[in-house]
């Protein structure tokens, strides 16, 4: 794998060097597969869905602005694809048309790292109870804790206000902690 940035490789693909798209696939397939498996909760189909993400990314590569970062761009495509898949499977919207969380301002909790102990507990709870959460809370948790993205990056991917990312993460953490507290296996 070359030491070039994603943006340089994407520019080369835009210029017609389609073979270099393979490098982008190599760099992102692991991350996107993990994102898909945790978000859609179907390990069997994750590979097919991620394959679709790469196909869409290639089809739309000329819409990528090389002055910006490639990572949020491809994650945005993945988000759209995964959300459509969830809608298709469960025949329902992930968030209502009138999403009050995204409509009104909220006090923004700072985007700071949790303490080591809290983070460890959250990760244990995340593994055990992520599937129980509503997708709108599940996704920011995955992006924040597993993909290690900032609030601003999550905001760009999910196209929701930065303060809404904070609100959803706070609620998701509370739900996880409650689930963990009720789980005798985790208590022991």
């Amino acid at each position: 794998m070359s030491g070039e940035t994603d943006e340089i490789i994407a520019s080369a693909v835009q210029a017609g060097d389609s073979e270099r798209f393979a490098e982008l696939i190599e760099r992102y397939q692991g991350k996107l597969l993990r994102y898909a498996r945790k978000f859609i909760l179907d390990p069997d189909d994750a590979e097919d869905i991620v394959q679709d993400v790469f196909v869409k990314a290639y089809q739309n590569i000329n819409s990528f602005d090389a002055a910006r970062r490639f990572s949020p761009w491809i994650y945005r495509i993945a988000h759209n694809e995964f959300v459509n898949e969830i809608k298709r499977r469960y025949a329902r919207r992930i968030v209502p048309v009138l999403d009050f969380d995204a409509m009104f301002p909220h006090l923004l909790a700072p985007d700071t790292a949790d303490s080591v102990a809290v983070e460890r507990d959250l990760r244990i709870a995340l593994d055990a109870h992520l599937a129980e959460l509503d997708p709108k809370y599940r996704e920011p948790l995955i992006l924040y804790y597993l993909e290690e993205m900032s609030y601003a990056e999550i905001s760009d991917i999910m196209q929701i206000p930065v303060s809404t990312v904070g609100v959803r993460l706070a609620r998701a953490r509370a739900l996880l902690q409650k689930a963990a507290a009720d789980d005798p296996a985790l208590q022991s």
């Binding site: 389609s18 073979e19 696939i25 590979e47 991620v50 790469f54 196909v55």
Partner: peptide, 11 residues
């Protein structure tokens, strides 16, 4: 692999 399938479709 996933990569091979996508690249084959591109080629």
């Amino acid at each position: 692999t996933l990569k091979e399938q996508v690249m084959l479709a591109i080629r």
